[in-house]
Structures are given as structure tokens and as C-alpha cells.
């Protein structure tokens, strides 16, 4: 048996609207219906002008980030049954709204790219060189941070990014930590400048909400605090060896 939920969605049509406005839709739902499916129902049956991003429907592509009752969520991993009081859906916070639930993530992507999120070697290895062996302990130093799907929920959760978008932000700093702590990587020096900056690890005030909202259980707040420890060590070394 299906029930009906009043779903409020914040709309923004750049060619028509000066600012976003709320629109309400009645959506019949069953226990299994996700927010993403509710949006699909609205677009197919009620209002074809609604825009939103989606792809995989299984919490791996990171496309369907949005605010559900003020909390950053993946639409595909959030279910109507958990919101008996109704839901208000808004574009992902802290990003410019392009249209309806679609945001402009180019700043976020640029930051992810800036920290060189790939293994850097002083001399390239070839398959002939054989395997790069890591112990379980060495792998644990970075494994969870490599689970990031770049959905941006942590940026929507982070007031420091919202207050100052020069801040590198949770995912980029977690990714930086991920590569700096991979024993196969030799590029730490190229990344330290990002970590050491006011806009790097030091822009974080350890709110901790980034880790709370992560749909993949990555802990960016931990990565950033460990990054602060790394950066503090680097600060002391730089003091002892000026000019380097």
C-alpha cells in the first residue's frame, strides 16, 4: 500500500528567477522508495522542468548529493520512509546553484586536482620492476581515505568552506593525506605547500561534520588532524633548516 508524501523542493531557473523558491509536490511512495526515485517520479509524472543530477543509483558515482532537511545526503541512499514528517530538498549547500538541484562543483574538482591525487615516483616503475609490496599496516595508513567518491557532501557540511571557499576543504585534504601516506608515493614534498597553508589543513577548526555526513565512512576530519601533525613537524624542520 502506498502513502503520499509532501516533498518540498527548492527550485531555481536561472533564465526566469532572481532567487530560488520552494515548490511542493505530492509523491506516492512505498517503503523502498529513495529520494532519487521520488525525484524521478516528479520529473516523469508531475513536472518535467525539474533538474537534478544522478547516474549510478547505488552510492558509487557521487552525483546525487543534495540537502535533505538541511543535511547533506546522497539521494540514492536516502529513503522517504525515514522522513515521516515530510522532506525539504535543496541543492547541495556551499556550492553555487546552477539550476534546481544542480550545483557548480568546478571549484571542488579543481581543488581535488590541485593536490596531485596520484602516485608520484622519482623514477617511473615499469611492470618489469615487479610488485610494490605493502604490509597491512602500511595499507591501513591510507585505505579508508581512498574510498572517497567525490560527491561533495563533506564540502556542504563544512562551515569553513562555506565561509571561505579558498579553503582546500575536507575531500581534497583527505586525498592529499591518502597519497602522502602511501609507501609507493614519493611526491610528498610537492603537496606540503597545500597542507601547510592557511587555506590548507590550518583552515580547519575540527567541526567534524564532514566525517559525520560521508556516505562512504571516510573520515576527512581525521585525515586533516593528522595532516596538521605532519604540517607542524614540517614547520619545525623548516625552522631548523631555513632557506631550504
Amino acid at each position: 500500500m502506498s502513502q503520499v508524501m509532501k516533498v518540498e523542493i527548492q527550485r531555481y531557473r536561472p533564465e526566469l528567477d532572481k532567487e530560488p523558491f520552494w515548490q511542493s509536490y505530492d509523491v506516492p511512495y512505498t517503503k523502498e522508495m529513495s529520494v532519487l526515485e521520488a525525484l524521478a517520479y516528479i520529473k516523469d509524472e508531475l513536472d518535467p522542468t525539474l533538474s537534478y543530477r544522478w547516474s549510478c543509483r547505488m552510492a558509487i558515482c557521487g552525483s546525487c548529493g543534495m540537502m535533505v532537511n538541511g543535511v547533506p545526503k546522497l539521494g540514492c541512499k536516502t529513503f522517504l520512509r525515514d522522513y515521516p514528517q515530510g522532506m525539504k530538498i535543496e541543492a547541495l549547500a556551499n556550492f553555487p546553484i546552477e539550476r534546481d538541484l544542480v550545483v557548480d562543483m568546478s571549484d571542488f574538482i579543481a581543488k581535488l586536482e590541485a593536490i596531485k591525487p596520484y602516485i608520484i615516483r622519482e623514477t617511473e616503475q615499469t611492470p618489469e620492476d615487479g610488485c610494490s609490496i605493502q604490509t597491512p599496516k602500511e595499507m591501513e595508513q591510507y585505505r579508508q581515505f581512498s574510498m572517497c567518491i567525490n560527491c561533495g557532501l563533506c564540502y556542504a557540511a563544512c562551515p569553513q568552506y562555506g565561509l571561505n571557499d579558498k579553503f582546500m576543504g575536507p575531500a581534497a585534504l583527505a586525498l592529499l593525506h591518502r597519497y602522502n601516506n602511501d609507501t609507493r608515493d614519493e611526491g610528498k614534498e610537492e603537496r606540503m605547500a597545500f597542507l601547510n597553508a592557511h587555506e590548507g589543513a590550518w583552515g580547519c577548526t575540527f567541526v567534524g561534520y564532514c566525517s559525520d555526513v560521508c556516505p562512504k565512512k571516510v573520515d576527512p576530519a581525521a585525515a586533516i588532524q593528522l595532516g596538521k601533525v605532519d604540517s607542524a613537524k614540517d614547520y619545525v624542520i623548516a625552522m631548523l633548516k631555513p632557506g631550504e
Binding site: A193, F194, N196, A197, H198, E199, G200, W202, K228, S231, A232, Y235, V236, A238
Partner: peptide, 12 residues
């Protein structure tokens, strides 16, 4: 990017 002097204050 400029190095922050925050490590000193963060330690304290």
C-alpha cells in the same frame, strides 16, 4: 601558497 604560522598556536 604561503606557509601558515598556525602550528605554534595550534600546539599551545
Amino acid at each position: 601558497m604561503k606557509r601558515s604560522n598556525e602550528p605554534v598556536f595550534w600546539g599551545l
